[in-house]
Design a protein around this nucleic acid. Structure first.
Lengths: 226, 226
DNA sequence: TATATATTCAATAAACTACTTGAACGAAGT
DNA sequence: ACTTCGTTCAAGTAGTTTATTGAATATATA
């Protein structure tokens, strides 16, 4: 009886693990870490069919990781708490630390990574206070609107080209996006450097920034495309 | 190509999730959080056959969560890092917070839980410094030897009865074991209270204590069964 | 060298998971 | 009432995981 308790309990814990056991679901979690999303938006961004996406969301919900809100004919999913972001980051950190294949992948695809010397969050915060740096958020406008680093300009990657002239050449430009493995910021920094800017990438992305308890801004403070 | 990177990467992360997707494996992780163990010991404690245990350990190893050391005819497994303990605790916390079934199970089996008012780790540390409390570690001797709360007496549950007379009636007695859902400390506190002692349970167990960065003692300081 | 012990490997059946397809449902707009 | 749209459900197939069993491997002991 008391021996069943533990097994039953751990079987419940395993439901959380099971929810994390599929790459597509992890990708959904990562997108949901940016904010609430409709099924369609999640399907589009993850490259799955809508039906397939719906089923995965169902599984995430049964494991308690996401919650749904119905609004008209749309259903908006969101992570059920900040602890889920933390859990995701825990998984990522363990995989980075102990799976050789992860480091191989990172080295293969992100060869630039080392040469770009990412800037730690705390350091960016200090410099931004002194106005020594221009911060740009290269995520889509909706993700920026849901929350961003204070004072950051929203310059979606697609519009970077247009706004190159707006950036100062005398201060450093720091770009960030969805997370440490989101390629948006990598591409942005590469382009900026090509244009002669002193550009760097923020270590990690917005969810990690928020998770670390650093200040955030939810109102769209500045738009680069005024 | 850059789109494959993310999928490949997340598929790797999912291997970690997959390792966590089975209750038996989670139980193995919990035991390994106490220290190194042989396959046989793990099989015994988890109630699985040795072959079955070996296979699950294999999977944990492929996911990078455990590492093995061969010593004569024994193979000793251990967690591959403290980050794995943290990951396990993350899973547990999320399950506790978002799965109704977990709270139901806890309320069904551990009805005593609320009435025992567990003592937080930091508070215990403060009181122990002032000698206001007797701390007992009710885990088996080998787990105690691998690390324990400084100054704690090792009184395995099986020997509690014998040593009841050794405990003081004028100071509080605090018991701890493997973790928040390990029943050893519950049983010990129940027995002690029955004997008229002022007994409480430490919130969480030894792995959580260690994980919190609190001081630990590895040499067997005091034995209750001298 | 023979034998016991600890662990892993291999083969199997039963159970489960992922993805696809097409239909069903319910809310909004015409 | 009818159509459209976003989402979910249901059924089917291919592939994967689990637990069991018995054999294989390797290390120590006699």
């Amino acid at each position: 009886m008391s021996t069943n308790f533990k097994q039953d309990l751990f079987a419940e814990f395993a439901r959380v693990g099971k929810a994390l056991s599929n790459g597509n679901r992890l990708e959904l979690i990562e997108f949901l870490a940016q904010g609430e999303r409709s099924v369609e938006a999640l399907a589009k961004v993850s490259g799955m069919t809508v039906a397939n996406t719906s089923q995965h969301l169902q599984q995430l919900r049964q494991a308690g990781l996401v919650a749904a809100r119905k609004d008209g004919q749309h259903v908006h999913y969101r992570l059920s708490g900040d602890d889920v972001v933390q859990l995701f980051e825990c998984v990522r950190r363990v995989a980075e630390a102990h799976l050789a294949e992860v480091t191989r992948l990172v080295n293969t695809y992100l060869t630039v990574k080392d040469s770009l010397e990412p800037i730690p969050a705390q350091e960016l915060l200090n410099r931004a206070r002194d106005g020594l740096v221009t911060v740009i958020d290269v995520r889509p406008a909706e993700e920026y609107a849901a929350g961003h680093v204070p004072g950051a300009l929203n310059v979606p990657l697609s519009q970077l080209e247009k706004h190159l002239a707006d950036f100062p050449h005398d201060t450093e430009v720091v770009a960030y996006c969805r997370g440490p493995y989101c390629v948006l910021a990598y591409d942005a920094v590469a382009r900026l450097r090509q244009g002669g800017f002193d550009a760097r990438r923020l270590e990690d992305g917005f969810p990690e920034w928020k998770q670390a308890g650093l200040p955030i801004e939810t109102a769209p403070a500045q738009k680069a495309n005024e």
